[in-house]
Protein backbone atom coordinates (compact mmCIF):
# COMPACT_ATOMS: atom_id res chain seq x y z
CA UNK A 1 0.00 0.00 0.00
CA UNK A 2 2.75 2.42 0.89
CA UNK A 3 4.38 1.33 -2.28
CA UNK A 4 1.28 2.30 -4.13
CA UNK A 5 1.06 5.65 -2.42
CA UNK A 6 4.68 6.68 -2.11
CA UNK A 7 6.17 4.73 -4.99
CA UNK A 8 3.57 6.11 -7.33
CA UNK A 9 3.01 9.41 -5.52
CA UNK A 10 4.22 11.45 -8.45
CA UNK A 11 1.84 9.70 -10.77
CA UNK A 12 -1.10 10.42 -8.53
CA UNK A 13 -0.24 14.08 -8.46
CA UNK A 14 0.28 14.02 -12.19
CA UNK A 15 -3.15 12.53 -12.59
CA UNK A 16 -4.73 15.14 -10.34
CA UNK A 17 -3.02 17.95 -12.21
CA UNK A 18 -3.99 16.48 -15.49
CA UNK A 19 -7.60 16.19 -14.49
CA UNK A 20 -7.69 19.71 -13.10
CA UNK A 21 -6.09 21.15 -16.20
CA UNK A 22 -8.27 19.14 -18.47
CA UNK A 23 -11.34 20.17 -16.57
CA UNK A 24 -10.47 23.84 -16.85
CA UNK A 25 -10.12 23.43 -20.58
CA UNK A 26 -13.16 21.31 -21.08
CA UNK A 27 -15.53 23.42 -19.05
CA UNK A 28 -15.09 26.00 -21.81
CA UNK A 29 -15.30 29.19 -19.94
CA UNK A 30 -12.99 32.14 -20.26
CA UNK A 31 -10.53 31.75 -23.12
CA UNK A 32 -7.55 32.94 -21.10
CA UNK A 33 -8.41 30.44 -18.44
CA UNK A 34 -8.63 27.72 -21.06
CA UNK A 35 -5.08 28.50 -22.03
CA UNK A 36 -3.95 28.38 -18.43
CA UNK A 37 -5.74 25.06 -18.13
CA UNK A 38 -3.85 23.83 -21.14
CA UNK A 39 -0.63 24.92 -19.48
CA UNK A 40 -1.48 22.97 -16.35
CA UNK A 41 -2.42 19.99 -18.43
CA UNK A 42 0.87 20.10 -20.28
CA UNK A 43 2.92 20.67 -17.16
CA UNK A 44 1.48 17.51 -15.67
CA UNK A 45 2.84 15.60 -18.63
CA UNK A 46 6.21 17.21 -18.12
CA UNK A 47 6.27 15.97 -14.57
CA UNK A 48 5.27 12.51 -15.72
CA UNK A 49 8.22 12.34 -18.06
CA UNK A 50 10.72 13.82 -15.65
CA UNK A 51 9.58 11.41 -12.96
CA UNK A 52 10.31 8.56 -15.32
CA UNK A 53 13.86 9.73 -15.67
CA UNK A 54 14.62 10.14 -11.97
CA UNK A 55 17.04 7.67 -10.45
CA UNK A 56 17.14 7.53 -6.69
CA UNK A 57 20.48 8.71 -5.47
CA UNK A 58 21.31 9.99 -8.89
CA UNK A 59 22.15 13.53 -9.75
CA UNK A 60 21.75 15.85 -12.65
CA UNK A 61 23.17 14.38 -15.84
CA UNK A 62 26.12 16.70 -16.05
CA UNK A 63 29.18 14.56 -16.00
CA UNK A 64 31.58 15.24 -13.19
CA UNK A 65 34.46 13.26 -11.79
CA UNK A 66 33.56 11.18 -8.81
CA UNK A 67 29.87 10.95 -9.52
CA UNK A 68 28.67 7.60 -10.70
CA UNK A 69 24.92 7.74 -10.69
CA UNK A 70 23.07 10.15 -12.93
CA UNK A 71 19.44 10.55 -13.74
CA UNK A 72 18.20 9.73 -17.21
CA UNK A 73 18.81 12.68 -19.54
CA UNK A 74 16.50 11.58 -22.32
CA UNK A 75 13.20 12.66 -20.69
CA UNK A 76 14.79 16.00 -19.92
CA UNK A 77 15.55 16.51 -23.56
CA UNK A 78 12.08 15.52 -24.60
CA UNK A 79 10.50 17.82 -22.07
CA UNK A 80 12.67 20.74 -23.04
CA UNK A 81 11.20 20.39 -26.46
CA UNK A 82 7.73 19.98 -25.05
CA UNK A 83 8.08 23.12 -22.93
CA UNK A 84 9.03 25.11 -25.96
CA UNK A 85 6.07 23.70 -27.80
CA UNK A 86 3.90 24.62 -24.84
CA UNK A 87 5.03 28.22 -24.69
CA UNK A 88 4.66 28.55 -28.43
CA UNK A 89 1.12 27.30 -28.23
CA UNK A 90 0.40 29.67 -25.37
CA UNK A 91 1.77 32.65 -27.26
CA UNK A 92 -0.25 31.79 -30.32
CA UNK A 93 -3.33 31.18 -28.20
CA UNK A 94 -2.97 34.52 -26.45
CA UNK A 95 -2.57 36.31 -29.75
CA UNK A 96 -5.79 34.69 -30.87
CA UNK A 97 -7.50 35.68 -27.64
CA UNK A 98 -6.51 39.29 -28.19
CA UNK A 99 -7.90 39.22 -31.69
CA UNK A 100 -11.06 37.53 -30.50
CA UNK A 101 -11.54 40.19 -27.88
CA UNK A 102 -11.14 42.88 -30.52
CA UNK A 103 -13.54 41.17 -32.87
CA UNK A 104 -16.19 39.99 -30.47
CA UNK A 105 -15.74 42.26 -27.50
CA UNK A 106 -15.67 39.35 -25.12
CA UNK A 107 -13.55 36.36 -24.28
CA UNK A 108 -16.22 34.24 -22.69
CA UNK A 109 -16.72 31.09 -24.67
CA UNK A 110 -20.48 30.96 -24.24
CA UNK A 111 -20.97 34.55 -25.31
CA UNK A 112 -18.83 34.02 -28.38
CA UNK A 113 -20.77 30.92 -29.26
CA UNK A 114 -23.97 32.84 -28.94
CA UNK A 115 -22.69 35.58 -31.22
CA UNK A 116 -21.51 33.00 -33.72
CA UNK A 117 -24.89 31.38 -33.79
CA UNK A 118 -26.73 34.62 -34.14
CA UNK A 119 -24.98 35.75 -37.27
Amino acid sequence: MTDLIIGLYNYWIVIILMMVGFYIVMSRQNLVKSLIGLNIFQTSVFILYITLGKVTGGTAPILEKGIKLYSNPLPHVLILTAIVVGVSTTALGLALVVRIKEAYGTIEENEINRMDNES
Binding site: V98, K101, E102, A103, Y104, G105, T106
Partner: peptide
Protein backbone atom coordinates in the same frame (compact mmCIF):
# COMPACT_ATOMS: atom_id res chain seq x y z
CA UNK B 1 -0.99 46.29 -29.55
CA UNK B 2 -1.77 47.85 -26.19
CA UNK B 3 -0.60 51.23 -27.35
CA UNK B 4 -2.74 51.00 -30.43
CA UNK B 5 -5.73 50.08 -28.37
CA UNK B 6 -5.17 52.75 -25.79
CA UNK B 7 -5.18 55.52 -28.33
CA UNK B 8 -8.60 54.40 -29.33
CA UNK B 9 -10.65 54.35 -26.15
CA UNK B 10 -13.89 53.29 -27.77
CA UNK B 11 -12.19 50.08 -28.74
CA UNK B 12 -12.59 48.96 -25.18
CA UNK B 13 -16.01 47.57 -25.76
CA UNK B 14 -14.74 45.97 -28.91
CA UNK B 15 -17.59 47.19 -31.01
Amino acid sequence: RQRLTDEDPDEENGA
